[in-house]
Design a protein around this nucleic acid. Structure first.
Lengths: 344, 344
DNA sequence: CTGTTAGCGCATTCAG
DNA sequence: CTGAATGCGCTAACAG
C-alpha cells in the first residue's frame, strides 16, 4: 500500500558534487556543461562524483541565472485528429534533436482555453511557442508580444502572422475540393464537417466555388468538433441521405470521417465512387492507398511539424526566417472519379 | 524579414509589481497566489498593477523556492498509434484540470531513448512521471528511485511495478485473441504485428494458447514498429498470403493495421469474415462499428489516460493508492465470426 | 492582514 | 585552466 519508503533525501546540489570532487562549484558546473574548458583529470573526477552522488542538475536554478530554459510550449486543438498527432510527433522529435523539450496544451478548439494555457505556460519562460491556427484572443496576442519570444502558427495561412506562420489557405483547399468533385462529374456535392473554424473556412471556399460555377448550394452537415471521427461518419452520412437524398458526393473534414462515410455507403449498398463520391482531408495517404474509392485533399502533418520545428529553432537561435510560408496541399484522386468509374 | 522589433524589455519582476502597487513584494506574491490572505483593496491594486505592467510570474524562481513545479513528465513510444494519442489527450486534459502541465517525450520504443529523455527531464524537477510499459534501463530505474517522485507505468501489467501501474497483461490479451478466433471456427490463424515488446508478448500469449489447443503453430509476420499502420496492412497481408496461403484469420497488433488488412482482403476478393477472419487491437471501437466484418481486442486509451492522471494526482498529493491495477481488455465480436457469417 | 530576512541552486561576471 | 563574489526572481518562515 505504501508506495515508496520515506527517504531522508535532500538531493545533492552542485556544491555537494563539487565538494565530493574536490573542486569549486563553478568548475563542477563547467565540467558538466562545457567540458572542453576543463582539464581531463578534473572532468573525470567530477564524472565519478556524479556517479557516486546521483547528482541531477536543477534546471530551474540554471534557467533562472542563464535565462535559457530549452523549453518550447505547443498547443493543438485535440490529439484525436491524426493530423495533429502526426505533426506533434515530428515537432517533438525534431525539437528533441536540438535538446529542446516540449510542453503540450490542448485547446479543444477554444481560443479562451488557449489563452489560459498560454498565461500559465509563459511563466515557465519557454524559449518558443507553437500555436494552431491564427485565431487568438487579444490578451493572448498581447502576452505573446510582451513575452518577446518566437512564435510559430501552424495549419493556416495569413499574410500577417504573429511571427512565423506555416500552413495553407483553408479557403483555397475548399475551392480545390469543389473543383475536383465537379471535374469528376458530380453535380450535387455536399459537405460533412466538424464545427471548427478551419473546417468552416474550407466549407466557405467550397460554397464559394460552387456559387461561382452556378451550381446549386451544397448541403452542409455540421457536428461538434471533437466527436470521434470514423464513428461519426456513419450517422452523419445517414443524416445526409435523409436530408439531401440528391447529394451525389461528400467532402469530409477529415480522412477518418471519410472512411466512416465510405464504410456506411457500402453498408447502404451505394457504389463508391460511381453512385457516391467521397473526398477526405488529411494525411492518411497510405490509408487512402488501401481504399481506392477514396480521394483526399492531402496535407502532410509530419511535414508541417518538421517545418515548424526548423523555423522555431532558427528563430530561437536569433536567425530571421521567412515570416510566412504557404506549404500548400494537394488533391489526390485515386481511381475515384465518377468518370473513371464510368469507363469500364 | 526582421521578425520582431528589438525591445528594450527587461520583463517586470515581482519587485516592480510591488512598487507599482505600493506594497511589499511578498504581499504582491500573496495577492497573486493566495488572495484570501490579502485585503480586498490591496488585491485590487495589485491586479491593476499586473494589468499596467504586463507582469508574468517567473515560475522558475517560484519553483526553486517552493519546490513545486506543477510539471509532469510523460513519455510514449510514438504518437502515430491512436491508443497513445487518445491516452495522452485524456492524460493531459485531466492533469490540466488540476493545474499540472505535461512535458512530452517520444521513445521510439527504445528504453535507451527513454533513459536519455528521463535524465534531461528530471532536471526540471517534475512532480510526477508517466511511463509506457515496464521495460526500463537500470539507470532509468535508479534515476526514478533517487528522484523520489510518483511514477505511473501504463499499458502493461506486473505485480512489481516501479510505483503505480495501470494496464493489463499482454499475454492474456494474446491468449484471449487466439481463443476468440478458435471459437469462431478458424483453424489456422496467423499474426500480423509490429516489432515492439508489447505486441511481441501478445503474440507469445497467442502462440501459447495455440500450442495448448494442439493447433498448428500460427505464422507470424513482423514489421518495424513505427511504420504507418493502415498502409502497412496492405503489403503485410499480401506477404501473409504468399507465405502462408492456408491462413484463414489474422490477429493484428492494431486496429489501424486491421483496417488495412480488411481493405486489402476486399481488394483480393476474399470474403471477410467467411473466408478470412480479421481481429484488431485497440480502441477504435466506433471505427469497428462502421465495419461489421472487423472484430477487436478492445482497450480504451482514454480510460487508461484518465486513470493514470487520477492515480498520479493522488500520489502527488501524498496519498497512497493501489500500486497495481489491471484494467483489462475485452474481446469484441461484431458480426464477425465465421459461424455467424455461415448462418444466413 | 502585512513586512523582514533569508536562501533556494546555479551561472555569469571578473580575476587570477 | 580554475576560483570568488554576486544576484537571477521568488517564497518560507517568522515576526509584527
Amino acid at each position: 500500500m505504501s508506495n515508496r519508503p520515506a527517504r531522508p533525501s535532500a538531493a545533492p546540489t552542485l556544491k555537494d558534487l563539487a565538494r565530493l570532487a574536490g573542486v569549486s562549484p563553478i568548475t563542477a558546473s563547467r565540467a558538466l556543461h562545457r567540458p572542453e574548458l576543463v582539464a581531463e583529470a578534473t572532468r573525470t573526477r567530477v564524472a565519478q562524483a556524479v556517479e557516486q552522488s546521483g547528482y541531477v542538475p536543477n534546471s530551474l536554478a540554471g534557467g533562472l541565472t542563464s535565462r535559457q530554459t530549452r523549453l518550447v510550449a505547443a498547443i493543438v486543438p485535440s490529439m484525436g485528429h491524426s493530423l495533429f498527432s502526426d505533426m506533434l510527433d515530428a515537432l517533438i522529435t525534431s525539437l528533441a534533436a536540438e535538446r529542446y523539450e516540449t510542453t503540450l496544451g490542448i485547446s479543444r478548439y477554444d481560443p479562451a482555453h488557449e489563452e489560459t494555457w498560454l498565461a500559465a505556460m509563459l511563466s515557465r519562460r519557454p524559449e518558443g511557442v507553437v500555436l494552431t491556427g491564427t485565431e487568438h484572443t487579444a490578451r493572448a496576442r498581447r502576452l505573446l508580444l510582451n513575452a518577446d519570444i518566437p512564435v510559430v502558427e501552424l495549419w493556416d495561412y495569413t499574410p500577417h502572422p504573429l511571427d512565423v506562420i506555416i500552413g495553407f489557405s483553408q479557403e483555397d483547399a475548399g475551392r480545390a475540393a469543389f473543383r475536383h468533385l465537379a471535374a469528376c462529374g458530380y453535380q450535387r456535392p455536399a459537405i460533412l464537417r466538424s464545427d471548427d473554424s478551419r473546417a468552416h473556412r474550407r466549407a466557405q471556399g467550397f460554397l464559394r466555388a460552387a456559387a461561382e460555377t452556378g451550381a446549386p448550394e451544397p448541403v452542409q452537415i455540421v457536428f461538434p468538433e471533437d466527436s470521434p471521427q470514423t464513428g461519426r461518419g456513419r450517422d452523419a452520412f445517414s443524416a445526409l441521405r435523409a436530408q439531401a437524398p440528391q447529394a451525389d458526393a461528400v467532402f469530409c473534414s477529415s480522412d477518418a470521417l471519410a472512411q466512416g462515410v465510405l464504410a456506411q455507403a457500402h453498408a447502404l449498398g451505394l457504389q463508391v465512387p460511381r453512385q457516391m463520391g467521397v473526398l477526405g482531408f488529411g494525411d492518411q495517404a497510405l490509408a487512402v492507398d488501401c481504399i481506392p474509392a477514396l480521394s483526399s485533399v492531402k496535407v502532410d502533418g509530419a511535414y508541417i511539424g518538421r517545418l515548424g520545428a526548423a523555423a522555431l529553432i532558427a528563430r530561437m537561435r536569433g536567425e530571421n526566417v521567412t515570416a510566412a510560408q504557404d506549404v500548400g496541399f494537394e488533391v489526390i484522386a485515386r481511381a475515384s472519379t465518377r468518370a473513371a468509374a464510368g469507363r469500364p
